[in-house]
Simulated assay, not measured.
Amino acid sequence: MKCLICHDSGRPMYCAHCMSSSPNLLLTLKIDLLMLRETNVHLKSRVEDILEYGLSRIAEEGGDEPVPNVEGDILGKRLRKLDSLVLRKKNNKIRYRISQLRQRIDQKTHKITMLNAEVRKQCFMNSSKREAVLKKNHSDQAGVEVKQQLLQIKKVLLKSQLVKIRSLVDWFVIRKRDSYEFPYTLSFQPVVSLKNVYKLPPSVVWGSIMTMFRYLTLFSELLFFTLPHKEPAIPNIVNMELETSIKTPDESTSDDAGIMDHLTKLLINIVQVSRHLNLISQEPIDLAWMLDQNDLDTLFYNMAMRLETKSKPVSHHWTYPQILAVVSDALQLSSVYATSPTSRRTLTGTLANNNDHWFVVR
């Protein structure tokens, strides 16, 4: 065909009849395809005949007589050999499994023999050992009974302790009052603290310290706890007011140091008793921070009422000089104030404008 515009020849075009009948186009390929299909059909029938004959020869014994199908005979021999190999492999697995089971049977037999020997040995245990076992069982049972009795006694003791502690609080008349400077009283006396010690007469201060130590002594005896510092010798407070008025500044400073020492020992006793009651952490704590948050009177009241007190842990243990320095700083008894006593109010003085007066009643 030629293009109607440029009259140049393009690709050839054939009709359906030429495509089907021309030997130079598709006819040759069709003939080859048909011959290949016929060959495949013939080979397929041949393979099926050989396979069928070979499968039929598996169960038959091979002989020397000629066979009509040599390929089928060869296939039958190969299949018989394959079956024999598979059967041999299966028999080997079964034989190995049987050997394993025999070993396990032998092991179990040996274990049974050992257990029987152990049972016979236990059966022939002499009477003395049996008596020892019986005594041990009896002692264990007695120990359990003793533990139960101790638990009951402990419960009774704790109950009795709580009753006595409540009675001790009522006996010493520990009260909380609506006052910022003196929020707690003990035996109708103010509970001395580091912030109010300047505002109390010396007789009241020493009376409060003496009563607090007496309460701690009785409280520790109820708890079966040994105080780190025993009740100190308190000076006679009957004529203390008269003696204070005639004392020099150096003698007043000496009294301040004595009060500071007693307050330090009082603080140590309160902290240790609170730790014994699990009211304060058993780990080292920051005493300066705790005194800043809760003064000595609050710590004493929390201990008496068995209230927990917040604390902040530290990495070191406190010594007595360190605690004394903390109390000294809280009382503002530094070396500057010690050298210039006129610049501060001493412990033996009272505030002129203090309306909450306290006295020791004889």
Rank of each mutant, 00 (worst) to 15 (best):
D140W: 06
Q141Y: 02
Q141S: 06
A142L: 15
A142I: 12
G143Q: 15
V144D: 03
E145Q: 15
Q149V: 06
L150H: 03
L150M: 07
Q152W: 09
I153V: 05
K155L: 09
V156I: 06
V156G: 01
L158T: 08
L158Q: 15
L158V: 00
K159Y: 00
Q161T: 05
Q161K: 13
Q161V: 03
L162S: 15
L162K: 14
V163W: 12
V163G: 02
I165Y: 05
V169W: 02
D170H: 11
D170V: 11
F172P: 04
V173N: 09
I174R: 07
R175A: 01
R177L: 12
R177V: 15
R177C: 11
S179Y: 08
Y180I: 07
E181H: 13
F182K: 13
P183T: 08
P183L: 04
T185N: 07
L186E: 02
Q189R: 15
P190C: 03
V192L: 13
V192A: 07
S193F: 05
S193M: 04
K195G: 01
K195R: 11
N196F: 03
V197I: 13
V197M: 01
K199T: 09
P202T: 12
P202G: 11
P202N: 13
S203L: 03
S203Y: 04
S203M: 07
V204T: 10
V204P: 09
W206E: 04
G207S: 13
S208F: 01
M210S: 13
M210C: 09
M212T: 10
F213A: 01
F213W: 03
R214L: 06
R214K: 08
Y215L: 06
L216C: 09
L216I: 03
L218D: 06
L218K: 14
E221P: 02
E221M: 14
L222Y: 06
L222E: 05
L222F: 04
F225I: 12
L227N: 03
H229I: 00
K230Y: 08
E231W: 01
A233I: 10
I234V: 07
I237K: 11
V238F: 06
V238Y: 09
N239F: 00
M240G: 00
M240R: 13
L242G: 06
L242Y: 06
T244S: 15
T244D: 09
I246M: 12
I246P: 04
D250T: 11
D250M: 12
E251H: 10
